[in-house]
């Protein structure tokens, strides 16, 4: 069991190392959209400060959404997903590994780079710790939920925008509590309750999403 998980994780990371542009793309996307907001709102630092928590969180959400579509795409196209489905072990374990690898390659770098974006958007320094913590927990939930959408649509030739339609409604609670946490911190209040709620969502998602992902993958492999 451990061998399977280690092998899957190792393979996903190896693939990312061989094609690093797939890891960098969401980050560049994040940066680009962060640049768009001041252009749209205006350079007034007070206004930017006000919008920064929401902007940072929405952009992080969109960047994850963009990346999540490819979570199983390559494996489906070349047929290695079939081999995984036929493995004697239950499918939800490798599914969880794929999500974890995906989070390591998108959510975690986004979180680590977020202070830079926060400074560009004039987010008060005292909120940066909360921003990182909320993104750390929140992007993991986003990857897990996104994995369900990716698993359900990977067998479709015209997946594309469909996955956004399926997943964005489920992202609503994460966005609400994630951006609220940063807003609270920026206003000088404790964001602990919001972070705890995000932690709760993460626990629930870790417990349930792998099963939905496994079910989705089986259906998609069937369709292929």
């Amino acid at each position: 069991m451990g061998r399977l998980l280690a092998a899957c994780l190792r393979r996903q990371l190896l693939l990312a190392v061989r094609r690093p542009v797939e890891v960098v793309n969401p980050l560049v996307f994040f940066l680009l959209v962060v640049m768009l907001f001041p252009l749209g709102i205006g350079p007034d630092p007070r206004q930017l400060t006000e919008f920064a928590p929401a902007v940072l969180w929405i952009v992080a959400l969109l960047a994850t959404l963009l990346a999540v579509e490819g979570m199983f795409r390559g494996d489906f196209d070349d047929g290695t997903l079939e081999q995984l489905v036929l493995a004697p072990q239950p499918l939800f374990l490798p599914a969880l590994t794929y999500v974890f690898a995906h989070w390591l390659l998108t959510g975690l770098p986004l979180t680590l780079l977020s202070p830079l974006f926060a400074l560009m958007l004039q987010l008060p320094g005292k909120a940066i710790g909360t921003l990182m913590l909320s993104l750390l927990l929140g992007t993991a939930v986003l990857s897990l939920i996104g994995g369900i959408g990716a698993a359900l649509t990977v067998g479709l030739k015209r997946g594309g925008i469909l996955i956004s339609l399926l997943i964005i409604p489920f992202y609503v609670p994460v966005l609400i509590f994630g951006s609220a946490a940063v807003q609270f911190a920026a206003a000088g209040n404790s964001a602990q309750p919001q972070l705890l709620v995000l932690g709760g969502m993460l626990s629930l998602a870790v417990a349930l999403a792998p099963f939905a992902i496994a079910a989705g993958l089986r259906i998609s492999v069937d369709a292929g």
Partner: peptide, 8 residues
């Protein structure tokens, strides 16, 4: 597929 999505 819709059954899975509706359960989620």
């Amino acid at each position: 597929a819709c059954a899975v999505l509706s359960l989620v």
